[in-house]
Design a protein around this nucleic acid. Structure first.
Lengths: 184, 184
DNA sequence: GTACACATGTAACCGGTTACATGATTGC
DNA sequence: GCAATCATGTAACCGGTTACATGTGTAC
């Protein structure tokens, strides 16, 4: 269903591990306990994904110095992994992203801020805001063009959709002004 | 990605065909031209899904009376298909739905209204509203508990999430009062 | 000694995605 | 005759889901 050829989970893992190296188990906990759960973290997705990234050379396994025999594989991103993450963060914000991958854009925003800093985050937000506003306008036009013979249910449903994009637009504007008025 | 074992597309097709029988091509157009596109409608998903539903006896193919040799398979829901749709429409609204399948809930709301009528739509909205409000509260508590050491980016991101659920909650309330003040 | 949390992994199943293939009909 | 649109279909690929399997450490 989701529409994300190079899977989001990959970048969620890369980003989390770039913040601080940890094990698959730790990652699964972060997914389970935070809104990150949207990007899922079932064992059947996390462990295979970690191994794929490892084989691609985007992660390295730092052998745990632990004395106890308890196995625990700590992963950290390599230079190549960080490079791939950066490339993802620099992708343009498209209307398709806004339609199909709002959550992913939100995740990208956070990582853009944390890994690239304030200026890039501002630029990202500006592009994000623009696409959100444009899509809200498009949906509004669609709504007005078709609302004629519609049932109240369909109408209400599309209205909440439009309001959602408008809310996001206002949020982006507020975020921009907050970031602007910030020291650092 | 998404978290929907009995797939949404199935019910989107069932619901659309219950409104009026049509062909796979027509369905694809409806997906392409409306916000239904979220539930996708690539040929590789629609046609196989249609055939699956046909084999399950949920759809019947009404042979086109067309004189021209142009092939066009018109599908219509059977009694069994309509029954299955109704069962889906009567599923309780859960927090998991709110987290992972907001769009699907929105689709269900429309179909509940169109196929079951105003009273069931009101009951659906009440349940929907309750789950939305509760999850917004939960997220707010989470936010307050963790906002201490967070970067502005993570904070902003979770804030827009919370606002989204609040917006949906208010929408449900408004929809309830609109439906209440309606003749029919 | 037993229950629970830690920790990792695997396999069957399912269905969506892209990309391609096929052919009929319509308009010019 | 040719292009565009109508209309349906298929196959390779991918990865997420559930459910199960396995074994270790810790607390009681």
């Amino acid at each position: 269903m989701s529409k994300t050829p190079p899977t989001v989970l990959k970048f969620a893992l890369l980003g989390l591990l770039a913040q601080s190296p940890c094990s698959g188990y730790d990652l699964r906990k972060q997914f389970a306990e935070t809104p990150l759960k949207l990007f899922s973290g079932s064992p059947g997705s996390v462990y295979p994904a970690l191994h794929r990234l490892h084989e691609l050379g985007l992660l390295e396994e730092t052998s745990p110095p632990s004395a106890t025999g308890r196995r625990k594989q700590i992963f950290a991103v390599t230079a190549a992994g960080r490079a791939e993450l950066i490339v993802w963060l620099q992708q343009p914000v498209t209307r398709d992203d806004v339609i199909w991958s709002l959550h992913e854009l939100q995740l990208r925003f956070v990582f853009v801020g944390e890994f690239l800093g304030r200026e890039p985050a501002v630029r990202f937000l500006e592009a994000f805001r623009k696409e959100l506003a444009e899509y809200a306008v498009y949906l509004t036009a669609f709504h007005e063009a078709t609302s004629a013979g519609e049932s109240p249910y369909g109408r209400l449903s599309i209205e909440v959709g439009i309001e959602g994009y408008r809310l996001h637009t206002r949020w982006a504007e507020r975020a921009l002004s907050e970031l602007a008025s910030e020291d650092s």
